[in-house]
Simulated scan of single mutants.
Amino acid sequence: MRILQIIPSISLVYGGPSQMVLGLSEALAQEGVEVTVLTTNSNGDVGQPPLDVPLDRPVEQNGYQVRYFPCSPFRRYKFSLDLLRWLAGHATEFDLAHIHALFSPVSTAAATVARSRHLPYLMRPLGTLDPADLRKKKRIKQIYAALLERPNLAGAAGIHFTSPQEAKISERFGTSTPDVVIPLGVKQPAMLPKGQSRKELGIPETQPLLLFMSRIDPKKGLNLLIPALERLLDEGANFHFVLAGGNPQDPAYENKIREQLQASPLRDRTTITGFVTGDSKTALLQDADLFVLPSYYENFGIAVAEAMCNGTPVVISDQVYIWEEIEQAEAGWVCTCDVDSLTKQLRDSLADASERQRRGTNAQEYALKNYSWKAIAQATIKAYQQILTSKSRLG
Rank of each mutant, 00 (worst) to 15 (best):
T271V: 04
I257V: 13
E259I: 10
Q262D: 12
D268E: 15
P265F: 10
P251N: 02
L261M: 05
Q286M: 02
P251M: 01
G278A: 10
D250Y: 01
S264L: 07
D268W: 08
Q260W: 09
A263V: 06
A244E: 10
G278T: 09
G245R: 04
E259D: 15
A244F: 07
S264I: 08
I257W: 04
G245Q: 06
A244N: 06
T277A: 14
Q260E: 12
T270L: 05
D279G: 03
L243P: 12
G274D: 03
A263W: 10
G246I: 00
D279Q: 14
G278M: 08
T273K: 05
P251W: 04
P265V: 11
A244Y: 08
T273G: 01
E254P: 02
T282K: 13
R269Y: 11
K281L: 09
S264E: 06
R258D: 09
F275W: 13
G245L: 02
L285K: 04
S280M: 13
E259W: 07
I257F: 03
N255L: 00
A244W: 05
K281E: 07
Q286V: 05
Q286A: 02
V276T: 09
P265Q: 10
Q260F: 01
R269F: 11
Q262K: 15
I257S: 03
G278P: 07
P248R: 09
G278N: 10
G245T: 05
D279S: 13
Q260L: 14
E254D: 10
